[in-house]
């Protein structure tokens, strides 16, 4: 290597490092900018929840009146309770059925597996508005057929089937269940099969193998699936709008209330929910980290 060559090399490396550093700074600045973009509306929501003015358009000073107003608005509280109930049931059903489906998939005949896979993809991709409308029409037709039979079988005491919280749960479960299946199957692919085989070689019952080997490995996927299902169900407007009967959810309430200007009590509720979710997530993060540390310490030979 000649001296000039070395010099050039050095200069080139320095220049590359400088470009890299400048690029890094630019990337950081850009990322911060995107985060500002993401949080701007959230800041607005929180600020207006403490606004004394009666409408979002007039900023008037600090007040917590909207928190009290939200708490005493029976429509809002009832919608909130409906939304929570529906989201919890959706998450439970979607997680159980979606996980079961994922576990069964590998044991299905290939053609059957392809069919179930296809149905899952269709469930995920069909737009909410289409599934909402199709469900409404189908459910109503089905109820018209079923109700006379129910009356006949029960001797007239059966309650009539109709749209309500249950139909929203049914429609939400369809989509979220498919998501859970995809997540769990992805996890299964990365799973260590040798443990399951070892467990089987030791003549553990399939149920025991599942509980002690498979389930713990799948848990992260199942938990994130459940969370996604809950979030989707809680925030969905369009499917709930079509499949709801008289039980309205928070998004339906919000959508209807914009007509005459949204009350800041809505912002108050949103702020409370945001704080609760952030605290829950932080807590969950803390607990899981501590759990990991303990497990790490307890491992033999470590």
């Amino acid at each position: 290597m000649t001296a000039t060559g070395g010099e050039l090399d050095l200069r080139g490396a320095l220049r590359a490092a400088r470009i890299e550093r400048a690029g890094g700074r630019a990337a950081w600045a850009y990322t911060v900018l995107v985060f500002v973009f993401l949080f701007l509306p959230i800041v607005i929501v929180v600020v207006y929840s403490f606004n004394a003015g009666r409408h979002v358009t007039d900023l008037k000073g600090f007040s917590t009146q909207w928190y009290a107003a939200a708490w005493s608005d029976p429509f809002l509280i009832k919608a909130l309770r409906n939304s929570l109930t529906i989201a919890v049931f959706t998450a439970a059903l979607a997680t159980i059925m979606g996980t079961a489906c994922a576990l069964a998939m590998d044991r299905l005949r290939p053609r059957m597996r392809a069919l179930v896979e296809l149905l899952g993809y269709v469930a995920i991709t069909v737009p909410g508005i289409v599934i909402g409308i199709a469900s409404l029409i189908f459910l109503v037709t089905a109820f018209d057929w079923l109700d006379p039979w129910l009356v006949f079988v029960s001797g007239g005491t059966a309650p009539r089937l109709g749209l309500g919280a249950a139909t929203i749960v049914a429609a939400h479960t369809l989509f979220t269940m498919a998501i859970v299946t995809v997540l769990v199957r992805t996890r299964m692919r990365g799973m260590d099969r040798s443990l399951v085989e070892a467990s089987e070689d030791l003549f553990a019952t399939p149920w025991r193998t599942f509980l002690q080997v498979t389930l713990p490995q799948l848990l992260p996927a199942i938990v994130s699936g459940a969370l996604l299902a809950f979030t989707f169900s809680f925030d969905d407007f369009i499917i709930a709008f079509f499949t709801s009967g008289q039980d309205q959810t928070v998004p339906i309430y919000l959508f209807a209330s914009i007509r005459r200007g949204v009350s800041p009590s809505v912002n108050a509720i949103a702020t409370v929910l945001l704080v609760v979710t952030i605290l829950t997530m932080a807590l969950a993060g803390l607990v899981s980290r501590r759990g990991q540390r303990r497990r790490g310490a307890g491992e033999p030979g470590s």
Partner: peptide
């Protein structure tokens, strides 16, 4: 609450809306 008569009709025509 509904934003229009048409929306009410969608539910009432569907039937069994409670």
């Amino acid at each position: 609450v509904y934003g229009s008569t048409e929306e009410m009709e969608a539910k009432i025509r569907a039937g069994n809306s409670g």
